[in-house]
Write a protein that binds this DNA or RNA. Structure first.
Lengths: 111, 111
DNA sequence: TTAAATATATTGGTCACCCAATATAATGCA
DNA sequence: TGCATTATATTGGGTGACCAATATATTTAA
């Protein structure tokens, strides 16, 4: 019924329903902790979700967030360091409130 | 920065990142509470998320869950009552565990 | 100095979700 | 009976997330 992913063998990924659609939210949330470069973000996502997004997933998502003015990029050697803009900080704050009010009930029952 | 939806004026919907991709998960979760017909499910989703899915969203999703054997349908008058199958009960249980382990950290900081 | 490894990036294709628009079936009421 | 309402359902068009494959730039190691 559940799958495992090579990157995170301890996490069971449900097969009944995927939970795509949360990528941009999770990226913004991770960047509230600290600035990170692309592959670092991908690895943090792997730890959380059990699946590491491929380059074809993560880089277009980062590009879109940059175009929307929610994150900014700074090249350092081979890495591109991403961090939240003021608009991104406001946005993720709102989004977290919404997320908690929408999904909080599910947590209450499982904690 | 945030939007309102006619169906639920008290819920602020973030504009920085949508959270699509959780529909099937939420439908299965709602059906752990009680059996419901389509429009009832749509209204419960509106209460949770601030947006009520249109017929073109909810019915294909229900059809897909039925094809996958996760829910079963019983016609009663003009209504179709949906309920979880055993497979659906196992699936949503797994999915809830995954959801809580993946997203729990976000809640911890906002509660 | 050359090869391997790491990080970034794009392309093309699939899928779940989203809506508006349209259609049909069943119910309820005048 | 006939009309409005409610519920179910499909179609077509769009978007974000997803992957595999491919390419380029930078750094590291042999």
């Amino acid at each position: 019924m559940s799958k495992k992913n090579a990157c995170c063998p301890e996490i069971d990924i449900p097969t009944c329903c995927d939970m795509r659609g949360m990528l941009s939210f999770l990226i913004l949330w991770l960047l509230t902790k600290r600035s990170m470069y692309g592959q670092e973000i991908a690895e943090e996502l792997a730890k959380m979700r059990g699946t590491k997004p491929t380059p074809g997933t993560i880089y277009p998502a980062l590009k879109e967030l940059r175009i929307k003015g929610l994150i900014k990029a700074k090249k350092e050697g081979k890495n591109v360091i991403y961090s939240l803009t003021d608009s991104g900080k406001n946005g993720i704050d709102e989004a977290c409130k919404y997320f908690c009010s929408s999904f909080g009930e599910i947590f209450q029952e499982y904690k």
